[in-house]
Design a protein around this nucleic acid. Structure first.
Ligand SMILES: [Zn+2]
Ligand SMILES: [Zn+2]
Ligand SMILES: [Zn+2]
Ligand SMILES: [Zn+2]
Length: 751
DNA sequence: AGAAACGTTATT
DNA sequence: AATAACGTTTCT
C-alpha cells in the first residue's frame, strides 16, 4: 500500500513512454469477478483474541492475516464517524499531501484543504488517491495506535534510539530533517474506483491496515523467488498497463476488506488494491526480525530496479545497524550506541549523563534469551551483507563508533545461540528492547527543572546526592527570577518572617534559603539571559514595559509548558517547515499560571495543549491560599483570621490585587509609585512607601525579635533533654554557621 | 497536607 | 566570589 517501493514507471523516469499512459489493456471488471484468484493464502479470523507475538515466534509471519473485528489486537482508531474533514482538522489544512491521479498515474501535491474540497465535491472530475499521508506528531497521532503485536516487533520501536526519535517529536526548525524513519502511521483516503497497481511495500516492510470506512479489494501474490523474478520482469518491462501481474503468476488470491477489518500483510507480498467505494483507512509500515531474509531480498530488488530514493524506506541501513546494536546490548550486555554530547554541555555533565544512560540500559538486558531460527538466519545474513561493504557504503549512524566490533559481537552471539531451540524462543515477549524509563522520556513526560530544584529532602543523611544537569541544552524547565518591579518585589525584608529569621544576615542559619514572605514576586520572569530557541536572542519585556499600550506579545519571549522551549511568537510565525496554525493568536495560547508561559503553536497543533505542565507561581499560590482562608474565616481585607497561620500571609495580602479579577494581573508600581493598573489604584497599596505587613510568628517568644530555631532534624535529640550527638557538617555549612561547636543547647534556638 | 531542607542557578 | 532564592524532595 503506502509509498510503494516498486511501482510503475513515472514520467520523470528514463524509459517512461507517454503513449502507454492510462491505456489499461486489461479489464478491471473482469479481475474483480474472475474466479482465477482463488488461492487461500489469507488466514481469516473473527477477532484478535489469542493472537500475539508468541504465535508469530512459533509459526513465523508468512501469510496475510485478516481480522474481521479488531477486538484483542490492541489497535486504537477513531469512531466510524471520523471523516476526511476531521483529518484536515487534525493534520492541518495547510499540510501538503501527495496525491495520485489514478487515470493518468501522475503524482501531484495538494494542501489538505484542497484535498478535502475535492473529496467532498459531489461532482469530482478526477479519480484521486491519497496513500502516503504520514501523520505522526500531528493531533491525529493521539487518536491512532498500531496493533500491540506490531509495536512489539517494529524495529523502530525496538531499536531506534529513543533520544533521536525525541528530537523529531519536538523538531521545530528541522521538520524537513528525518531523525528516524517516519513510516509508522499513515491515513489513506481513496474515492470509489481508485486502483493502485501491483507493488511491493518499500524496503520489504510489513503492513498493518485497518478499514475505518468504505471497502477495499486486494489481489495478493506470495513472495517466492519465482514470483520475485516475474515481478522484476513485469516492472522493468515498462508495459505494466499491458498485463495484470496477477495473471503472470501461478497463484493469486483476491480478498475483500470491509469496515472494521484489520489486515496484516507480511514481508514481500506483491499486491494491487482496488477501492469499490470511498474509503478511509489507517495503516503503517514496519521492519522486524521475523523475515530478515525476505526484507533483504526486497531491498536487493529495489536496488536492481533502481527505485528512487524518495520511494524507498528512509534510513534503511542505519536502522539495521541500530538493530544489531540492540541485539548486542540486550543479549550480550555490550552497548554500542553512544549519544553525542549536547551543544554547550560540559564534559563532566556529559560523562555523568552517559554513566546514567549505561545504568538505565542495563534494565533492557536479558542475556540467555533464546532466538528464533528465522532470527538467527537473518542475523547471519545481515553480517554477510554488511561486513564486505566499504566504509563509505555502510551508512553507519554517527553515534555508533565501532561498527566492526559490533559485527564481531554479533558473530560471537550467533555462536553462543547456535543451539537455541524453537520452543525456547516462543516467549511472547520481545527480545530486543529499550528500558521502560528511556521510552517514557521519549514520550515526553514531565521533565525536571535543570539542577536548581533537583535535590531536596530534610537533613543531610536523607537528602541524597544531587543529580547533575542531565537534560539537553534546550529542554528544561527554566527557573524563574523575581521581576523586581512588582509591588512585593519592591518591598524590604520584613525581618520577622520564618525566612527572614533564617537568613544569615539576620542571624539565622541560612538553611531555608527562601525570600521574605512579604517579598514573594507575583510576576516572576524568565532570567535576563534566557534566549529564544530560534533566533538565540534574549529580547524580552519587563513587567513595566508589558503594561504599556504598544506592548506586542509576539515580540516577547515565551516558555512552552509542553516542549519547554523558549520562543518568540514572531520567530515561530516565520517558520515554514513546522506544522502549526499560521494565524495563531499569542494571547490565546498564553497561560495565566505564570507570566510568559504558553503552549507553543507547534505543541498546540499537535494536540498537546492539555499536556501543559501546571505551574503556579509562588506569589499566585500564596494569593490562592489567602483567598481560601478569607472564605474559611469569613474575614475580609487580607488579614487572616487564624493566628497560627498568619505567618503564611505575605505581601500579596496588600499587594494591590483584586482577587475577583481572575488573579492574573499583577499591579506594577511605576517610577514614583503611581500604579499602572486599575486594580492597583483601588488597592490598599497606594504609594511608593512600601509598608510591610507586620506579622507575629506565634511560636516566637513574645515581645522579642524572632530568632531562628535550630534545624529540626538536628535539634530533636536536644529537645528531649539528651545530649545532642556530634553532627557532621559540610564545609559549606560550617562556613555558614561559623564555628563547628555543638549549638544544640544554645537557648536562642528554643526561644 | 504542610513544613523543612537542599543543591543549584541567576545575578551582582 | 558572594548573595539571593527557586522549586523539588523528604520528613512529619
Ligand atoms: Zn520577611
Ligand atoms: Zn516581582
Ligand atoms: Zn526569537
Ligand atoms: Zn511547545
Amino acid at each position: 500500500m503506502v509509498r510503494p517501493g516498486l511501482k510503475r514507471k513515472t514520467p520523470d523516469e528514463e524509459d517512461y513512454d507517454p503513449l502507454i499512459d492510462g491505456q489499461r489493456e486489461w479489464d478491471l471488471e473482469e479481475k474483480l469477478n474472475s474466479t482465477n484468484y482463488s488461492a487461500t493464502f489469507v488466514d481469516v479470523r473473527d477477532t484478535g483474541e489469542g493472537f500475539g507475538l508468541a504465535e508469530l515466534q512459533r509459526d513465523g509471519f508468512r501469510n496475510p492475516l485478516l481480522f474481521k473485528n479488531k477486538t484483542g489486537l490492541g489497535l486504537r482508531v477513531p469512531s466510524e464517524s471520523f471523516n476526511v474533514a476531521d483529518v484536515k482538522l487534525m493534520v492541518g489544512a495547510r499540510r501538503p499531501v501527495d496525491v495520485m491521479d489514478v487515470r493518468t498515474q501522475q503524482a501531484l501535491v495538494m494542501t489538505m484543504r484542497q484535498w478535502t474540497d475535492y473529496y467532498t465535491d459531489p461532482n469530482r472530475d478526477r479519480i484521486l488517491n491519497v496513500i502516503s499521508l504520514e501523520f505522526s506528531h500531528t493531533k491525529l497521532d493521539n487518536y491512532v495506535e498500531s496493533p500491540t503485536v506490531v509495536r512489539q516487533i517494529d524495529w523502530i520501536d525496538r531499536a531506534w534510539p529513543p533520544y533521536l526519535r525525541e528530537k523529531q517529536m519536538d523538531a521545530l526548525n528541522s521538520m524537513d530533517t528525518m531523525f528516524y524513519p517516519k513510516v509508522r502511521k499513515y491515513v489513506l483516503m481513496s474515492v470509489a474506483d481508485c486502483y493502485t497497481d501491483w507493488h511491493v511495500d518499500m524496503g520489504g516492510t510489513s503492513v498493518w491496515y485497518h478499514i475505518l470506512r468504505g471497502r477495499k479489494v486486494f489481489w495478493l501474490v506470495p513472495p517466492t523467488e519465482r514470483n520475485f523474478q516475474l515481478f522484476e520482469q513485469w516492472t522493468l518491462s515498462g508495459r505494466q498497463d499491458a498485463t495484470f501481474f496477477g495473471d503472470m503468476v501461478e497463484k493469486c488470491q483476491r480478498v475483500e476488506l470491509e469496515p472494521g477489518n484489520t489486515f496484516f500483510i507480511p514481508t514481500g507480498w506483491m499486491h494491487a488494491v482496488y477501492t469499490p467505494e470511498d474509503s478511509l483507512v489507517f495503516g503503517g509500515n514496519y521492519l522486524h526480525s521475523l523475515n530478515i531474509k525476505l526484507q533483504l531480498r526486497v531491498w536487493e530488488l529495489e536496488e536492481k530496479t533502481r527505485v528512487k530514493r524518495q520511494f524507498r524506506f528512509p534510513l534503511f541501513m542505519q536502522l539495521h545497524w541500530y538493530v544489531l546494536a540492540r541485539y548486542a546490548g540486550c543479549l550480550m550486555r555490550r552497548e554500542h550506541v553512544v549519544p553525542p554530547r549536547e551543544e554547550g554541555e560540559d564534559l563532566a555533565a556529559y560523562a555523568e549523563r552517559m554513566a546514567e544512560y549505561g545504568t538505565e540500559l542495563k534494565n533492557s538486558h536479558q542475556p540467555g534469551q533464546a532466538l528464533t531460527q528465522a532470527e538467527l538466519q537473518g542475523l547471519r545474513l545481515l553480517l554477510q551483507w554488511l561486513r564486505p561493504l566499504p566504509p563509505n557504503r555502510r551508512e553507519v549512524p554517527a553515534d555508533l563508533p565501532e561498527p566492526d566490533r559490533l559485527l564481531d559481537d554479533i558473530q560471537e552471539l550467533l555462536q553462543e545461540h547456535a543451539a537455541d531451540t524453537p520452543d525456547a524462543a516462543c516467549t511472547g515477549a520481545p527480545v530486543i528492547r529499550w528500558p521502560a524509563g528511556m521510552l517514557k522520556e521519549a514520550a515526553g513526560h514531565v521533565r525536571q527543572l535543570r539542577g536548581g530544584a533537583s535535590a531536596g529532602g530534610r537533613g543531610r543523611k536523607s537528602g541524597g546526592a544531587a543529580r547533575p544537569s542531565k537534560l539537553p541544552a534546550d529542554k528544561f524547565i527554566h527557573r524563574r527570577v523575581r521581576c523586581r518591579l512588582c509591588e512585593p518585589c519592591r518591598r524590604q525584608d520584613c525581618r520577622e518572617c520564618v525566612f527572614c529569621a533564617d537568613m544569615v544576615k539576620y542571624g539565622g542559619h541560612g538553611i531555608l534559603k527562601q525570600c521574605c514572605i512579604q517579598k514573594q514576586c507575583i510576576a516572576c520572569s524568565l532570567p535576563a539571559k534566557a534566549a529564544c530557541f530560534l533566533c538565540r536572542d534574549a529580547r524580552k519585556f519587563n513587567e513595566v514595559e508589558k503594561e504599556e499600550d504598544n506592548y506586542d506579545p509576539d515580540l516577547d519571549l515565551f516558555e512552552c509548558g509542553v516542549c519547554w522551549r523558549l520562543l518568540h511568537p514572531d520567530c515561530v510565525r516565520q517558520l515554514e517547515t513546522a506544522d502549526f496554525d499560521p494565524a495563531f493568536v499569542t494571547a490565546d495560547l498564553r497561560s495565566d499560571q505564570m507570566p510568559n508561559y504558553w503552549c507553543c503553536p507547534v505543541c498546540h497543533h499537535a494536540g498537546k495543549a492539555d499536556q501543559l505542565h501546571p505551574r503556579i507561581s509562588k506569589g499566585l499560590k500564596m494569593l490562592l491560599k489567602l483567598e481560601s482562608e478569607q472564605v474559611e474565616t469569613g474575614q475580609a481585607g487580607g488579614r487572616a483570621g487564624k493566628e497560627n497561620k498568619t505567618a503564611m500571609v505575605g505581601a500579596a495580602a496588600s499587594a494591590g490585587y483584586d482577587s475577583d479579577n481572575g488573579a492574573d494581573e499583577p499591579s506594577i508600581i511605576v517610577g514614583d509609585g503611581a500604579t499602572s493598573t486599575a486594580a492597583a489604584t483601588s488597592s490598599a497599596s497606594t504609594s511608593a512607601e512600601v509598608k510591610p505587613v507586620i506579622i507575629k510568628i506565634t511560636t516566637s517568644a513574645a515581645g522579642t525579635a524572632t530568632v531562628a530555631a535550630a534545624p529540626n532534624h538536628r535539634a530533636s535529640a536536644g529537645a528531649r533533654g539528651r545530649p545532642a550527638r556530634k553532627r557532621r557538617r559540610t564545609a559549606k555549612a560550617r562556613a555558614a554557621f561559623g564555628s563547628d561547636e555543638d549549638d544544640s543547647d544554645d537557648p536562642d534556638f528554643y526561644a
